[in-house]
């Protein structure tokens, strides 16, 4: 007799999320005039694209059962270093090279973290708390906390907003949402259609079995954390595109938004679960909520409280009933 209750099917999580988001969206559409406008929706997409990009990287790490809260520090460091390197080496208007520099820096930091976790057998939360301090501390010291406005040309060219037309009306939007789309598709492909991606899930589901079956665990860790580092880099650069400046301290502190989005979307801190679609929905669920509250004129201080509450309630909802009857540990 099987002793397991039917577990929540991952597709069902996505369905619930979509429904909730539609409900909230409908609510805001009906009660405000502005919500359902293209301008607002593009703004929404634009505002949360960077969070979405970060969440793609974090999802990959969560799937392996680890956690990393240093990615925003990594993103900030990448922003700063990329500008420096581009200036040093003379990369001014070549997007490809500039991006490569950024991604390489991010991936290297990520792989460094992955190595510490795997080869030194240290719990991921502690490594990443430490790395956040190391990265952020060094960054603030080196930059003196000052913003950089003098960016290489490639950042300006693709940054800012671009106009386009739908019908007769002109709209503006940055490249953020497109980058998010690309990263989402890439992550989805890796997680679902490459062996390495499936091994990530396998390891998250049963690390000991993965070891016994000869999965290359070192490579797996390097990839997962390296990928998060790369996504941090992409997100960081996208943020620079948006803001058209590098502000060293602007990103750090919003880790929970990204983590909550992934967890709402079905990922678990215990590993083995989660998917791209759910995570994206999680990001935009939070985004829609914040956007709606904003349209209502709720102060941003208070909307933080609301979001915090919603996240806690949502986490309760996704965790409730997942434990076996006689278990008391974490789910």
């Amino acid at each position: 007799m099987a002793d397991t209750k039917a577990k929540t099917h991952p597709d069902r999580v996505v369905l619930y999320l979509a429904l909730v988001m539609l409900a909230i969206g409908a609510f805001f559409s009906l009660t405000t005039t502005v919500f359902l406008s293209f301008a607002n929706l593009f703004n929404l997409l634009e505002s949360y694209a960077v969070t979405g990009i970060f969440s793609m990287g974090l999802l990959v790490v969560l799937v392996t059962g680890g956690i990393d809260i240093s990615f925003l520090a990594t993103a900030s460091v990448v922003q700063y270093l990329t500008v420096l390197v581009c200036r040093q080496v003379g990369i001014d208007d070549v997007l490809f090279l500039g991006l490569t520099v950024a991604i390489v820096i991010g991936a290297c930091i990520g792989m460094g973290i992955g190595s510490l976790i795997y080869y030194l057998d240290i719990v991921s939360i502690i490594v990443t708390i430490s790395m956040q301090s190391v990265l952020f501390g060094l960054l603030m010291h080196a930059s003196g906390g000052r913003s950089i406005y003098n960016l290489p040309a490639w950042m300006f060219r693709y940054g800012g907003t671009h106009s386009f037309k739908i019908g007769d009306t002109a709209y503006v939007m940055g490249v953020g949402p497109l980058v998010l789309l690309a990263m989402a598709i890439l992550t989805w492909f890796i997680l679902n259609h490459t062996t390495l991606g499936r091994q990530l899930y396998a390891f998250g589901g049963n690390p000991e079995a993965a070891r016994r079956l000869g999965v290359n665990l070192g490579r797996l860790h390097l990839f997962a954390y390296g990928y998060l580092g790369a996504m941090a880099a992409v997100g960081g650069i996208t943020q620079v595109f948006r803001m058209e400046e590098v502000v060293p301290s602007s990103l750090v502190g919003r880790e929970l938004d990204v983590l909550a989005a992934a967890v709402l979307g079905g990922a678990s801190l215990m590993g083995g679960r989660g998917g791209v679609l759910g995570t994206i929905l999680g990001v935009f669920l939070i985004g829609v909520l914040k956007n709606g509250l904003n349209l209502y004129g709720v102060s941003s201080y208070f909307s933080d409280v609301v979001i915090g509450l919603v996240i806690i309630l949502a986490v309760i909802a996704t965790h409730y009933g997942k434990r076996k009857e006689t278990e008391v540990g974490f789910v």
């Binding site: 939360i125 929970l256 983590l259 909550a260 102060s299 933080d304 915090g308 806690i312 986490v315 974490f330």
Partner: peptide
Amino acid sequence: AYVGVHPILTTLGFMTLIKGVGIF
């Protein structure tokens, strides 16, 4: 204890909530 939410997630959530309330 009762729902089984991981302490990291729980306390991170409360940290955000309390910080929001405090700043508010």
